[in-house]
Amino acid sequence: MTTPIQWFPGHIARARRQLQEQLKLVDLVFNVLDARIPQSSQHPDFAQLIGERERILVLNRADLVPVRALKAWEAALLHQYPAVVTTNAQSGAGIRELLKASQSAYQRVNERRRRRGMLPRAVRTAVIGFPNVGKSALINRLVGKRAVRSAAQPGVTRQLQWVRIAEEIELLDSPGILPIKFADQEAAIKLAICDDIGSLGYNIEQVAARAFDLLLPLIPERLEERYHFDPTPFTGEGWLAHQAQHRHHSLTQKAAEQLLQDFRRGHLGPVALEAPAPT
């Protein structure tokens, strides 16, 4: 029996209420998604939260996705957003392009202010996304220094803070926002596989078994190269049991941890777990 994934820490509930108040002051939103799972890392309440505000889509961790898949997502998402920028917040790739897109949004926001007889001002920008998709690391790259706490685990940012990155732009860093309940359990599993929700919310062996089932048709040769046996006869559960028996003293949890760690760190090569719907 599969245990449903649910994770909604207390600080997330408080941050969501605070974010809804701060969004009243916001002109522009950076919607940060995990490039490996753009669909599953899109918050189901995003449109309701931001209303008619300017938006820029950021596909972070772009280095972990094949170029062809990344280009397909960019093309698909440009139908919904005025700008789609691919980034790697750890290396700084794509930051210049994001700043350029922000400048264009700054001009649009202040042109509307001028038409209303208002003076131009810095554009207030909120950075929104699930935990651990790289929001704080992205802000630190934009600022050019360590302005906010950042770590490779969900739930590090626990309060809202404003950071000025230029005369024209102020950024609001916020804790990752989560739905109160994951109605889409397949999306929740993919978030867990990519380490975008806390490990207390899921069974690691179930998540790793599902990760194997998703990865097998995509990268069978890479799995065989990494683990030194043919993966094709196995389901996820069977593969974990085999791996545990031969490499982890029969500890299935250790086998699960290794698979997820290898995927998350890019040791299995670039992989896109989702593709845009055909048009």
Rank of each mutant, 00 (worst) to 15 (best):
M1N: 11
W7I: 06
W7M: 07
I12H: 03
A13H: 13
R14D: 06
L28Q: 05
L28P: 01
V32C: 07
V32S: 00
D34R: 03
D34K: 09
A35E: 08
P38D: 14
P38T: 14
H43M: 13
I50T: 14
I50Q: 04
E54A: 14
L57I: 08
V58P: 00
A62G: 13
L64K: 13
P66I: 10
K71D: 14
K71G: 01
A72C: 02
H79N: 13
P82W: 09
A83I: 04
V85Q: 00
T86K: 10
T87M: 04
N88H: 03
A89V: 07
S91A: 13
G92I: 01
E97Y: 03
L98P: 03
S102I: 01
S104R: 09
S104T: 08
Q107C: 07
Q107I: 03
E111M: 08
R114P: 00
R114C: 08
R114N: 02
R114H: 11
R116Q: 14
G117P: 12
L119Y: 06
V123Q: 10
R124S: 11
A126N: 04
V127H: 06
V127P: 02
I128F: 04
V133M: 10
G134T: 07
K135P: 04
N140W: 02
V143P: 00
K145L: 11
R146K: 15
R149E: 15
A151S: 15
Q153Y: 04
P154E: 11
G155D: 08
G155Y: 02
V156G: 01
R158F: 02
W162V: 11
W162R: 11
A166K: 00
E168A: 14
I177V: 15
L178W: 01
P179V: 12
P179N: 12
I180H: 12
D184K: 03
E186C: 04
A187C: 02
A188T: 06
L191W: 05
D196G: 14
N203M: 02
Q206L: 11
A211E: 02
L214C: 05
L215A: 02
P220D: 13
P220W: 10
F229D: 04
F229L: 11
P231E: 07
T232I: 07
P233L: 06
T235A: 05
T235I: 03
T235R: 14
G236N: 04
G236F: 00
W239C: 05
A241C: 02
H246F: 14
H248R: 10
H248V: 09
S250A: 13
L251R: 12
L251C: 11
K254G: 00
A256S: 15
E257T: 09
Q258P: 07
F263K: 03
R264F: 12
G266I: 07
G266L: 10
H267R: 15
H267Q: 14
H267L: 15
P270V: 06
E274H: 10
P276S: 09
P278S: 01
